[in-house]
Amino acid sequence: MQSIVSRRKILIASLGAAAVGLTRTAQAAPANVPSIWDGKKMYDSFLKDGTGFSFPHKPNAPVAVVAFDTQCPDCMRLFTRIKPLLNDVDVIFYPISFMNIHSEPQGTTILMSKNPAKTFEEQHEHFKDPDFR
């Protein structure tokens, strides 16, 4: 009986060690930002020359700039996560065309609509529908 308990303890300990090792290797490394990337310049150019839209927000709210692609799953997840902040922060969304041939016409449709924020929300709601994408 003693050897069975010891084997179980060894098995449990080794599984625990393996799980810790897996967790350590699964952690993402920080992103390597190219040295030529200039976030301030991009931010300033979007505000100066870009065509974007925002949701209704409190007056004098802090400003955030988000470049997004209508076909980008990460962009759609970002919108889901920042949606609760839209009343307190003036998030200006700038559609860009990067992912595929559908990005530009969808971004243009959003910007040309009478209510771009509402159109973007509709696009976001239907994003997981393959026929809509």
Rank of each mutant, 00 (worst) to 15 (best):
A28H: 08
L111Y: 09
D131R: 13
I96T: 14
F127Q: 08
D38Q: 07
S6V: 08
A61Y: 04
I92P: 08
A31W: 07
D131K: 14
V89P: 09
D74C: 04
A29F: 07
I4N: 02
N87D: 15
Y94I: 05
D88H: 06
R77K: 11
L111R: 05
S35Q: 10
V89I: 11
F98W: 10
A18S: 10
I110N: 10
E104P: 03
L47C: 07
R24V: 15
N32W: 04
H102P: 03
S103I: 00
Q2W: 00
V66D: 10
F120T: 00
L47I: 10
I110T: 06
G107R: 03
Q2K: 11
P95Q: 07
E104W: 05
T119G: 05
K40A: 15
S3R: 08
I4H: 05
C72K: 01
L86V: 13
S6P: 00
F79H: 12
V89C: 02
L111M: 11
D131H: 12
K41A: 15
T108K: 15
F127S: 04
F120K: 01
L22S: 08
L86E: 14
K128Q: 09
F127M: 06
M99K: 07
P105E: 03
I36H: 13
I96R: 02
M76A: 03
F132E: 14
N115E: 12
A67K: 05
T51I: 06
L78Q: 07
T80S: 15
I92N: 08
N100Q: 04
L15A: 11
